[in-house]
Amino acid sequence: MSAVARAPRARTDGGSSWWVYAAVAAFALLVAGIFLSAFLNSIASSWFGGWLPDGYTMRWYRFALAEFNLGYVLWVTVVVGVSVTVLSLILGVPAAYVLARHAFPGRAPLLLLLVLPMLVPPITYGIPLAAMLYAAHLGGSLAGVIVVNIVPALPFAVLIMTPFFEQIDPNLERAARTLGAGPVQVFRRVLLPIALPGVLAAGLLILVRAIALFELTFLVSGARSQTLVVALYYTAFAAGNRPAQAIDAMAVVYMVTGLVVLLAALRFINPVNMVIRVRQ
C-alpha cells in the first residue's frame, strides 16, 4: 500500500520529512522529561541531587489514598464527568442534528449563541454563576458542580456532533418518513443507530474535557464535591505541609485517569475528526 501511495508523492514532494520527526522527538522528550520527573519522584523513597532517585517505594500512593481521600475524590470525578457527558449529549444531539439538517433564518446567530460559552473565559461567567448557585443553595454541592460544567461542555458537544450528522445521507430519513415513520421514530430508529459511533466518540472527548476543566469546578465546589483537578490544585497550593512525592502520586493518578479516556477516544476516532468544522 505504501509503495503505491508513496511513489507519486516522492516525486512531487522533494522528499524529506526529517524535521517532523525531529520536532516531535524534541517535544516528546521535553514532555517525557517533565512527566518522568514527577513520576519517579512519586515512587522515590528519597531523591537528592542524583540523576535517579536513591530508592523506590509505593508509600506515597498509600499516603495519598489515605491522607487526601483519593478514593472519594475519584468517585466524585467519575460521577461529575459521566453526568456532564450524558447530559450534554442528551441536550446536544438534537441541537446538532437541527443545525446540520435545517437551513433557517437566524441559524448563524443561533449557532454563535450556542458556541459563545466556548469563546469567553470560564471565570467571566463562572463568578456570577457561582454567586447564583450559592443563592440557590446549590453552591458547594455535587449538583452545582455538574450544572456549571455543562455550560462549556454543551457547546463543545454541539460543535463536534454537527459534522457527524452532516455526513449522514438525508435520503435515509426521507425513506423512513415515506414509509410512515414520525420524527421521533426517525430519530430513534434510523438516525441514532447510524450516529451512535460518532456520539460515543464525542462523549469520550467531552469526558476528557470535563475531567480536565478546572476553573468552574474550582469556583463552585465545596469540601465534599471537589473533582480530582481541584483537589489536586488545593493540595499543590498548600504544598508546605505535604510531601511533594505524595502530590506527585496524586497527579500521576489524575494523568492516568485522563490518559485512559483519551486513548479510548483515539482508538475510536481519527484525531482529524476530533475537531470542529461547521458548515457556514
Partner: peptide, 19 residues
Amino acid sequence: LLVIPMTLGTVLLAEGMIE
C-alpha cells in the same frame, strides 16, 4: 505523542516542571 500532553493536567505539569 503530540496530543497526549492534553491529559497531563496543570498540576502534574507544574509539579513535574518544578522538579
